[in-house]
Amino acid sequence: MTEIRTPRLLLRRWHDDDLAPMADIHADPRVMHWIDDGSVRDLDYTAEAIERWEEEWDEEGFGLFAVELLASGELAGFTGLTVPEFLPEVQPDVAICWRLGSPFWGQGYASEAAHATLEFALQDRGLDRIISITRPGDDASENLIRKLGMTPERETAHPVYGYPLSVHAIDLTEYQA
């Protein structure tokens, strides 16, 4: 089983008991504000999403990690690597993404998990370039993108919802953990 331990986190594959806490995260309007059309998601959506995330692990050899707090065992959300199929213009690039529940914001967990994920991409999966896609105005994500050393690459628009998107990239041969 693929997992990564950081000082405070366990990044791991998904378990059955992750469904309810991840569904709670998806039901929080503050979390979902910057995702797709901004609507909250239900338990069925979350179950289907986790199934897709696990399939990506099987098909691609990477995917979205469940992020668990080592101190408490709580599921904080996810971080990981994905093929951004919704945005064909950036393919074949692999994107890093994250989504944490609001009780876990502002504590450095997303940064800790994302840095570990970039190391995983470079050292374990041999990827040489990673992108991140965000909406302008999502200050927390834009701040994390800067912390990761990613630089702006292009502006585009969401193909379904039409709002602007910013694509940032990092060449992992230059990444300094």
Rank of each mutant, 00 (worst) to 15 (best):
E3N: 09
I4F: 05
R5M: 03
R5C: 02
R5T: 04
T6C: 04
T6R: 11
R8W: 09
L9V: 07
L9P: 11
L10P: 05
L11R: 09
L11W: 05
L11P: 15
L11T: 11
R12T: 01
R12Q: 01
W14R: 07
W14V: 02
H15C: 11
D16M: 11
D17M: 00
D17P: 07
D18N: 08
L19M: 07
H26I: 04
R30N: 14
R30S: 11
R30M: 14
V31L: 05
H33E: 15
H33P: 15
D37F: 07
S39V: 15
V40T: 15
D42Q: 08
D44W: 09
D44F: 11
D44R: 12
D44Y: 08
Y45A: 13
T46C: 13
E51D: 12
R52D: 02
E55Q: 09
E56A: 01
W57S: 06
E60I: 10
G61F: 12
G61Y: 13
F62M: 06
L64C: 11
F65A: 02
F65G: 03
A66V: 01
V67Q: 05
E68P: 12
E68T: 06
S72A: 13
T79P: 09
G80M: 04
G80F: 07
P84Q: 02
P84H: 01
E85W: 12
E85F: 12
V90P: 11
Q91S: 00
Q91N: 08
D93Y: 15
A95D: 04
C97R: 11
W98N: 14
W98K: 09
W98E: 13
P103N: 05
G106H: 03
A110I: 06
A110S: 07
E112S: 05
A113V: 10
T117C: 14
L118S: 07
E119V: 14
E119G: 10
R125I: 05
L127C: 03
L127N: 10
D128V: 04
R129W: 14
R129T: 06
I130H: 13
I131C: 00
I131S: 02
I133E: 05
G137T: 00
A140H: 04
N143H: 02
L148T: 01
M150Y: 02
T151M: 08
P152R: 12
P152Y: 03
E153L: 10
T156H: 06
Y161R: 09
P164S: 10
S166H: 09
S166K: 11
I170A: 07
I170L: 14
T173R: 13
T173V: 07
E174M: 10
Y175E: 02
Q176E: 15
A177S: 14
